[in-house]
Design a protein around this nucleic acid. Sequence first.
DNA 1: GATCGTTTAAAACAAACGTTTTATTCGAAA
DNA 2: TTTCGAATAAAACGTTTGTTTTAAACGATC
Lengths: 225, 225
Amino acid sequence: MLISGMATLVDEIPSDTKERLLDVAERLFAEHGFDAVSLRAITAEAGANLAAVNYHFGSKEALIGAVVARLVEPVNRKRLELLDAIKNDGQCDVREIVMAFLDPVLEASARGAGGDNRFFKLMSRCMAARDERVSKLVMRQFPEVVARFVEIICECCPGLSSNTAHLRLLFMAGAMAHSLFHHDKLAIVSQGRCTLPTFEVLREEMVIFLAAGLAAQEVGEYQQR
Amino acid sequence: MLISGMATLVDEIPSDTKERLLDVAERLFAEHGFDAVSLRAITAEAGANLAAVNYHFGSKEALIGAVVARLVEPVNRKRLELLDAIKNDGQCDVREIVMAFLDPVLEASARGAGGDNRFFKLMSRCMAARDERVSKLVMRQFPEVVARFVEIICECCPGLSSNTAHLRLLFMAGAMAHSLFHHDKLAIVSQGRCTLPTFEVLREEMVIFLAAGLAAQEVGEYQQR
DNA sequence: GATCGTTTAAAACAAACGTTTTATTCGAAA
DNA sequence: TTTCGAATAAAACGTTTGTTTTAAACGATC
């Protein structure tokens, strides 16, 4: 039997079943949510036995953690790389900040099975998960990204306080997550009056909107702190 | 026994138990999600019997629908009222559009048990619900609001296409929902480097950010359609 | 070729869920 | 007082869930 303490060892031994479980779980979790997807559904679709999840990961929650980590880590790494590239340029364009935050997500989603935006879907589901340990787990992967983006936002937008930069980063993340998650529902709420955007259009419109928001001028009390 | 066809009749007969169930369910659903809250938890906290939910509402899903309708309807009505007030003014300030969308939510949340932002929490949970009927149910309450806001956004921002106005409304809703849902998590991801904003600060910062985004200038292909 | 650790397979477990059924209580109308 | 329908109470039902247990198959090492 395998205990959790051996997780680091197991990671070094690739298992086809393990990867298939991760792939299927990632897709099903993003699309239907953690609670809606049973281990039976995952193992059946992955062609594995029901007990395989508990054998390879220890528990359903641990599987969730593995799925999230595998998806978030490369995205956040790429974000920081893009941020470094901006710094080396010397110039400072707000649009580039927005793209540095957004593009790695779009790239990761496109790499998966066809633009289903698993990243933000999984992020949203994590943040709203019934088990707080899941949300804690994902939030532990963001401090560095947050700090770096706040830093560059403050550099790029003179006069902006750190507090306000944090909030605007929150607004930006929310706008992205929500619109990439629910943009297909525009057809219903607009009653067909809105042309459904392609991902390129959605990206371009987002950059324009968010860059303007990030760079907005203000004079408020909160700003002074 | 009570069948669903008698629902309209029952609505006219106020029942303390029924209202208590709605109150408790609204709070618990918003805080923990639909799946995480059992009927046993709701009825226990409401001081009612387990069977009371199925007796008064027919099913758990019907209870969810009742909770959502009771919360969304007055908010959307207030939004349209504020929009009418703007129109009568004759002037057109983007900030007022943002506030017309946001303030009724804050007001409703404040009216409840202390600024827990049930509205956007419940909205988010509905849009991501495992049962599609729940998301369909809530989206059926938004076409009028969407149409009216798109209309006034187009009036207020000359040169903006209907398509882009729809998208910017989506961005705005996402930024609001996300930040009102998760603003308390800023303490963790910022590692204490961010002063947690009060609701008034959050509101003011949101208005500045979103007004700038809504009014942003652009020249894109999507714009021409 | 036997052996041992790793992996898969199949079955069973206990717990929690939404729902239904059956009894009981209560209050107003006849 | 009697009666009848609405409301509450209590118990049970059938499913589904994550997890555990037990058994079998596989694969490299000695």
